[in-house]
Design a protein around this nucleic acid. Structure first.
Length: 203
DNA sequence: TGCCAGGCCCTCTTTAGGGCCTT
């Protein structure tokens, strides 16, 4: 197998774009990848204690009625902190999900020790010919079958996991490494774009 | 009252501006 590291790939649905501006998580979805296989899934709605906008209802398909029946953020995020444990994390445009994860966990006094990698940054370096770097575009670019609706947390995390595996496959096809550790992917995702092809050729 | 993100990346750049990506 080309990656023996276990990673948790996650996606939040939220009330808006900025936790600093008062926005909250309303759904968390995640898959655990072990040896390239999905070995765990997590999906829960959470009630942020306020109504969400009509825009968010239509964007996510998550209604105020659905959230009214959900457990509160603290209860759900505590379960999610147990799920991620000390594994490394991945999300598409991770700077967004990391802000919400940090904010929601800070509210309940929980932390995570792993590194947080971004599939969008890695795609910009490994799929430089892609037309753009939206999750849906990259999934189609990598010829990953689409069989659900984007903008729900578990589905988007499943698609991000498949994209992550497609990038692992792409990289393993371009180098001689038998196993590609998370640390290497993380390092490539932070490298200047121009230096990536030359670096990969040395592996 | 009125406002409302932020990190990355490119370029007509670095004493900056604007588009992308996430909800």
């Amino acid at each position: 197998m080309f990656n023996a590291d276990t990673v948790v790939i996650l996606d939040f649905e939220t009330t808006g774009l900025s936790p600093d501006g008062g926005d909250r998580a309303i759904e968390i979805g995640a898959v655990r990848l072990e040896n390239g296989q999905v070995t765990g899934r997590f999906q829960e709605l959470m009630n942020p204690g306020r109504r969400v906008s009509g825009f968010i209802e239509s964007y996510t398909g998550i209604s105020n009625a659905m959230l009214a029946e959900a457990a509160g953020n603290a209860e759900v995020m505590a379960r999610f902190a147990d799920f991620i444990g000390d594994f490394n994390l991945v999300a598409h445009n991770a700077s967004f999900d990391k802000r919400f994860l940090d904010a929601e966990l800070a509210r309940i006094g929980r932390r995570y020790p792993g590194q947080f990698a971004c599939s969008m940054l890695l795609a910009r370096r490994l799929f430089q010919a892609a037309p753009d770097y939206k999750l849906g575009t990259l999934v189609r670019y990598a010829n990953i079958p689409v069989e659900g609706v984007f903008h729900r947390a578990l589905y988007d995390s499943e698609m991000t996991a498949k994209l992550w595996l497609a990038m692992l496959s792409e990289l393993s096809g371009r180098c001689r490494l038998g196993e590609i550790p998370f640390e290497l992917l993380y390092r490539i995702s932070k490298m200047p774009k121009k230096s990536v092809p030359g670096f990969v050729a040395t592996l």
